[in-house]
Simulated scan of single mutants.
Amino acid sequence: MKKIAMALLLGVAVYSTGVSATDVDQQQVVKQYSVLVSASYQDSLSSARDMQGKINAFLAAPSPQTLKAAQAAWLEAREWYGQSEAFRFYGGPIDSETGPEGFINAWPLDEAYIDGVKGKPKAGIINSKAAITEAKLRSLNERGGEENIATGWHAIEFLLWGQDLSRDSAGQRPFTDYTTAPNAKRRGEYLKLVTQMLVDDLASVEKEWQPNQQNFRAQFEQGGNDSIKKIFTSLGTLSRGELAGERIEVALDTQNQEDEHSCFSDNTHRDIVSNAKGIQNVWEGRFVRRSGEVVAGASLKQLVAQKSAAVADAVSSDMATSVKNAEAIVAPFDREIIGKKDAPGRKRVLAVVDALKNQTKNLVEAAKALGIKRLNTSV
């Protein structure tokens, strides 16, 4: 109660289920997880809609100022989407066989599949005669190769920033690409459409987690131990297979800018932080919303602590270290990964990988403490 009173004194709204550390049960944890997921997707959707408003304003009156505002809105929206990735990897609404994740966040992206690039000014869908319609872009997404990405966050990112051809800054796409450049009108139509598609896809996921509906959330809350296992699978897979592996170790191995997550905007360091925070949010059953409201309640941490306080403390410590180390990465990420093993940047990035590996190992132990013997943490 003292913590809640202090938060209210500071002007921060707090939502809590009122569950103490000594009376948490499986069902309460599952229900609180649903509350957290719903709140997170609401914020991701609302920030994407705010971004859409800035993009539409830019397209209506292209200028350096309106382009910068659209870019800033993309960066802000990514913070909220990144935290929601802790709800993936178990066949939920976001990435089931029919889920929209591949249209939302697929990467890495071959820029020349969408638009002209250095040395190939007439490349891409924008410079072709292909129809710029939702059906066409969905059909073209990942057609003929995983890097042939036509939609989602990174298509929008590329259209806002352009190629990153600088060592020390993000892409420098001029606003005139939407005014006097060849195919400027088609470029604007493309950006407007893929932004609308992203908003629609996020809305479809958010709807499946709304309370008191006949949707995925209603089924999930009746899943008992299976739902607990899904939560652990999501955390473990994002920690080890996806974030430590696909998103960081691959780039460290190749030292290639094309293998970083948000290479056009130089936002990869923040992608890593938001993913790490998302994992921590789920473990703690706590989420700080865009409004400042704190959503808090029964957590996996509490549930595991009732079986093994030592294991729960180890996971919590590892997650705090993961977030701290991720925040220590110096932008731009594509410079951090360059050099020999003992290069300061590489050491900072490797520290994140090590922390993520440790927290995954302890997440497996935490699952075992709850009777979950086998946990897949690969992508």
Results as ranks from 00 to 15, higher is better:
176 T>H: 04
70 A>R: 01
71 Q>L: 03
138 R>L: 11
135 A>G: 04
61 A>E: 14
144 G>W: 14
77 A>S: 13
152 G>V: 10
102 G>D: 03
64 P>Q: 12
143 R>Y: 13
143 R>K: 15
168 D>C: 04
166 S>D: 15
57 A>Y: 05
57 A>M: 10
102 G>F: 08
155 A>N: 08
109 L>P: 00
64 P>T: 14
142 E>T: 13
116 G>H: 10
167 R>H: 13
134 E>Q: 13
101 E>G: 00
114 I>M: 12
92 G>W: 02
118 K>N: 11
83 Q>P: 05
169 S>E: 13
124 G>A: 10
173 R>Q: 06
73 A>Q: 00
64 P>R: 06
137 L>A: 06
57 A>H: 12
108 P>Q: 11
149 I>S: 10
79 E>A: 10
78 R>M: 13
132 I>R: 08
121 P>Y: 08
156 I>E: 03
137 L>D: 05
159 L>I: 01
79 E>I: 09
137 L>M: 12
178 Y>A: 03
63 S>V: 09
102 G>M: 12
108 P>N: 05
135 A>V: 14
63 S>C: 04
164 D>M: 01
90 Y>G: 08
155 A>R: 03
146 E>I: 15
96 S>H: 00
65 Q>W: 12
121 P>D: 12
70 A>C: 06
171 G>H: 02
113 Y>M: 02
102 G>P: 02
80 W>N: 04
120 K>N: 14
98 T>F: 08
153 W>E: 05
69 A>E: 14
107 W>D: 01
120 K>D: 14
171 G>W: 09
